[in-house]
């Protein structure tokens, strides 16, 4: 069973429908720690602001169970579900996040130098260069475009976790991962065929970082 974590934010059904479309037979959108604990794999989606995200995770008492499942089973963070894995975010005047990965979430102005030609949010289809081979990229051509929509980006302390980069004014981490945890800034569930392929790869993934 795949658990999609429901903490009251984001278009969770899109993720559920996309997983079902690529062959997942059992998907549960849930805020129940026991159900999440019992899942074979976990998807952590999300949109919106990080303060709301973190306070919802605390309110729903999901922080502990997230920490547990990130230790030992295939785990996919999407968009806010990637940013929340970092140490902290500069959004909302600074918010402590889950701290699974060391690093900071910063506003795009930091990267683009406030260039008025670069609109914020970064919205649309951008190229993903695969900086490392990863089972989740199987069958996806290097440089394939995925759908992004975000105003903040992840700046990891250790470049070794960067799995894919995109360019918007400058290069930024568009996919990160280590061991059984993988996370994307883009939305695979909204990225048509290549996004569906990534999700299909996820439901077949054994949680090992390399083949």
């Amino acid at each position: 069973m795949i658990a999609i974590i429901d903490y009251g934010m984001g278009n969770l059904r899109s993720v559920e429908r996309a997983l079902t479309h690529v062959g997942a037979t059992s998907v549960q959108v849930t805020d129940d720690p026991a159900v999440i604990d019992a899942a074979d794999r976990v998807v952590f989606p999300g949109q919106g602001a990080v303060r709301d995200c973190m306070s919802a995770l605390h309110r729903y008492e999901l922080v502990d169970v997230l920490g547990r499942v990130m230790q030992d089973r295939p785990f996919l963070g999407i968009c806010m579900g990637m940013q929340a894995l970092m140490t902290r975010s500069e959004e909302n005047d600074g918010v402590e996040a889950l701290g699974y990965f060391a690093g900071t979430v910063r506003h795009f102005r930091t990267l683009t130098g406030g260039s008025p030609r670069l609109k914020i949010p970064h919205m649309g289809w951008n190229r993903l260069s695969q900086t490392r081979a990863h089972p989740l990229f199987a069958g996806i051509d290097p440089g394939t475009r995925f759908y992004f929509v975000h105003s903040y980006y992840v700046e990891p302390a250790d470049n070794a976790i960067v799995q894919g980069e995109s360019d918007y004014g400058a290069a930024f981490a568009a996919a990160i991962g280590a061991a059984n945890v993988f996370a994307t800034q883009f939305h695979p569930e909204k990225s048509q065929a290549p996004g569906l392929r990534l999700l299909k790869n996820f439901i077949a993934w054994d949680g090992e970082p390399c083949n």
Binding site: G124, R145, D167, Y168
Partner: peptide, 8 residues
Amino acid sequence: MGVARRII
């Protein structure tokens, strides 16, 4: 720039 112009 990277991001593609969209057709909707």
